[in-house]
Structure formats: structure tokens, C-alpha cells
């Protein structure tokens, strides 16, 4: 399975992260997105006329939407990431997968503007990003009331992976995550998953020292 990849792209990172979490090996083909704009060159435009990355190639199958890549990886190697099949859970997964495109457009747009000098209306992008974060925060709080730590279930699904990277990188676009405690706990839960991998701007959890063992009555 070959991934046309840009190391700073949150959408590419979704696919790398999903593959790492479920133990799928990817062949990485680095694309000079910035400064070279290789994704708009003839080789990649032939693969993906939309001119976006990531692109995932597996035999005859060519995928250009990161959401489809997450579903494909999970279906192949770890179907539990697609949810239990219960109607509400299925609906929530689809709801958040669609929602993740709003994060890409708003938070991702603000990040490209602030970091790589791409054109855009930064005030509008940040306002849309904040609106999306508030919606996500409310969704996670409601999940907490249902006793669930992740977006659609008590275990992570592809919906969490689809939403996580642009949210975690919101500060790159000048949007702080301080006002969103539920998002921060959720981010911590994802970063604490076995086989989690980082990308620049998303740090791993630092290993905590074991709690000191205090004997009862010793203080």
C-alpha cells in the first residue's frame, strides 16, 4: 500500500496514524508539497485530478479522500474501528466523518495561512474553526454523559482519527485549545493509545513517573 505523503499535512497524518494504530505497513512516497507544489505536477494530477494529497494506492484501487482511506484500512485490518454496527453509533461515525471536512476547511485553512502563507480570509477561517471546535466540545461532553470517552463509542473509531489531527494542530492557525476541556481530555485519550505516532506539532504524552507508594498511616 503506497501513500503519497506530506509530512506536515494533517490529512496525510490521519492515514499514517490509522495505519500505525492497527499495525498496517505503508510504503511512503514523500511529495514536495511545499515549497515545490509537486501535488500540482503532471504525475500526481494524473492520479488525482483534484490536486490534493494524500493519495493511497493499493493495486488497482486509488483513493483520494482521507476518510475513505481510514475506512479501507480499518475494513482490511481492524474492523472494530468501523464501530459495532449499532444504528446510533453508525450514524454518529458518519456524522463526525462528514464534520471532519469542516475542520479541514476552517482550522486547516487557518493553519496554512498562518504557517505556509497560503491566501485566505484569516478572520473568517478562525471564526469558522472556533464554531466547529465548540460543536465538537459539546459533542464530547454529551458523549461523556453517556459514559463514552470517544466521539461515537467508548472505544476509538475512524471518526476520532478523522477529527483529531486538525483539532490538535489548531494552535498552528492561531486558535488556542485552552477553552475546551473535553477536547483536551479526548486528545489525551487518543495520544495515549498503544502505537500512537506523532507529527510535528502533535507531541506524544510524556511518560509519567509511577505514583509514589505511600504506606497507610506513614505520613
Amino acid at each position: 500500500m503506497k501513500l503519497y505523503d506530506y509530512v506536515l499535512s494533517p490529512s496525510c497524518y490521519k492515514v499514517r496514524l490509522m495505519a500505525a494504530l492497527i499495525g498496517v505497513k505503508l510504503e511512503i512516497r514523500p511529495v514536495d508539497f511545499h515549497p515545490g507544489a509537486e501535488h500540482l505536477g503532471p504525475e500526481l494530477m494524473a492520479l488525482n485530478p483534484a490536486g490534493s494529497i494524500p493519495i493511497l494506492e493499493d493495486g488497482d484501487l486509488i483513493l483520494t479522500e482521507s476518510t475513505a482511506m481510514l475506512a479501507y484500512l480499518a475494513a482490511k485490518a481492524a474492523p472494530e474501528w468501523l464501530g459495532s454496527g449499532a444504528p446510533e453509533e453508525t450514524a454518529r461515525i458518519q456524522q463526525w466523518l462528514s464534520f471532519s471536512h469542516r475542520l479541514t476547511a476552517s482550522l486547516g485553512g487557518a493553519r496554512l495561512h498562518e504557517m505556509l502563507l497560503r491566501p485566505g480570509d484569516i478572520a473568517a477561517l478562525q471564526a469558522q474553526g472556533i464554531a466547529a471546535l465548540r460543536e465538537l466540545e459539546a459533542g464530547l461532553v454529551e458523549q461523556g454523559l453517556r459514559g463514552m470517552r470517544f466521539l461515537a463509542s467508548d472505544r476509538p473509531t475512524i471518526a476520532d482519527i478523522a477529527c483529531f489531527p486538525y483539532v490538535a494542530l489548531a494552535p498552528d492557525g492561531g486558535i488556542l485549545l485552552d477553552p475546551y476541556p473535553a477536547i483536551r481530555l479526548w486528545s489525551r485519550a487518543i495520544r495515549g493509545l498503544d502505537d500512537f505516532i506523532e507529527m510535528p506539532g502533535i507531541h506524544r504524552l510524556h511518560e509519567l513517573n509511577p505514583e509514589p507508594q505511600i504506606e497507610p498511616g506513614a505520613a
Binding site: Y6, V7, L8, P30, V31, D32, H34, P35, G36, E38, M115, P171, D172, P200, G201, H203
Partner: peptide, 22 residues
């Protein structure tokens, strides 16, 4: 090493610094 790999390597390093610098 292909050029894109060299660029990605250095951008990775610098972007790890960026969030600290800000």
C-alpha cells in the same frame, strides 16, 4: 536521498520547534 525526503526531514525538525517558539 530524494529531494522531497530531505525537505520533509528539515521541515519536520523546524515545525517541532515552531510550536515551542510561539
Amino acid at each position: 536521498t530524494p529531494m522531497a525526503d530531505l525537505i520533509h526531514f528539515q521541515q519536520t525538525i523546524f515545525l517541532q520547534d515552531r510550536s515551542i517558539l510561539e
